[in-house]
Design a protein around this nucleic acid. Structure first.
Lengths: 157, 157
DNA sequence: TCTTGACTTAAACATTAGTTTAAGTCGTAT
DNA sequence: ATACGACTTAAACTAATGTTTAAGTCAAGA
């Protein structure tokens, strides 16, 4: 049996966050002792794992509560629960893909600043013919420049 | 020259969000026409791109404003700006890795429900000897079970 | 000329996700 | 026996990120 403090340690969060989750329907399965204190059973950790995963995946508390509601309804909702997780998997997958696109842009911008630092000024990216001396840097520049051009093409009106 | 509406279309957000960003220091570079309307220059799209990227990477508006402040200070902050983006790249990288861990857990849980649906009940995952008939399913089960065991080992007190 | 649509502001409102506070209840160690 | 730490609640509070509202300005087309 785990206390609310134990669960807070396991999840790496504050006990008041757990009480907040409880208020919002994420923990309908927790039992209480005579004094009214929450007592988590070892099996409850299966729920805690799922809640933790969905939270970390960016799923709103309200949505997680709906999934937990399905869980409490027994075997008749197994397919619904599968479908729900399938949806969340898809969403998370897309989110990761988008994050990777942002990562690539950050890497491009790092190159942008690296070359600017080398030349001592950001102007080289606006006046390509005036200051780019090193031919290797110049080639890198032209190649990367296409990336920005593509982005502009996508986002311009 | 782009109006606030143009920029809203480019970023796929509401014009009031852009005004909010402006109030919070993300757009110190925008000029106004005689009537006081925001006029974005084509070069301003470089800022818009970065802001968009950082927003999508989950960077708080306050932090982005600090970066933009550095941008407005000219070439003397090039190194600082590089270091800032380097930090954000690292953070985003870690975030993506964690997301991938959550994705794997979701995939495991999908398997968990898939097998439960096949047997008609979730009980198979708690009473492994009672209902698991198909030996192939049984083997999959045992293998995946180790995953949960590992997770418990990590999170248990 | 007059209307329409796009813009402007300040200020109020909404939502999400908690955190903090105040007042109180237990079980246990000294 | 009493003090301490961990728990309980309801309610107020905070922070981030916008959205909505109300009142007004302006340029362009019918």
């Amino acid at each position: 049996m785990y206390s609310i403090g134990d669960i807070a340690n396991i999840m790496g969060i504050n006990t008041s966050a757990i009480r907040f989750y409880d208020r919002n329907g994420l923990l309908p399965f927790v039992q209480r002792d005579k004094a009214g204190r929450r007592k988590f059973k070892p099996e409850d950790l299966n729920f805690i794992e799922v809640i933790d995963c969905l939270k970390k995946s960016g799923v709103p508390v309200k949505d997680i509560a709906q999934f937990i509601t399905l869980c409490m309804q027994g075997d008749q909702t197994l397919q619904e629960r599968y479908d729900y997780l399938d949806d969340e998997e898809e969403k998370l997958s897309l989110k990761i893909e988008k994050m990777q696109t942002q990562l690539e842009f950050l890497q491009y911008k790092k190159w942008y600043y690296k070359t600017a630092i080398k030349e001592g000024t950001e102007d080289i990216h606006f006046l390509p013919n005036s200051r780019m001396i090193d031919p290797q840097t110049r080639n890198e520049f032209e190649e990367k420049r296409k990336v920005t051009a593509d982005i502009h093409e996508l986002t311009d009106l």
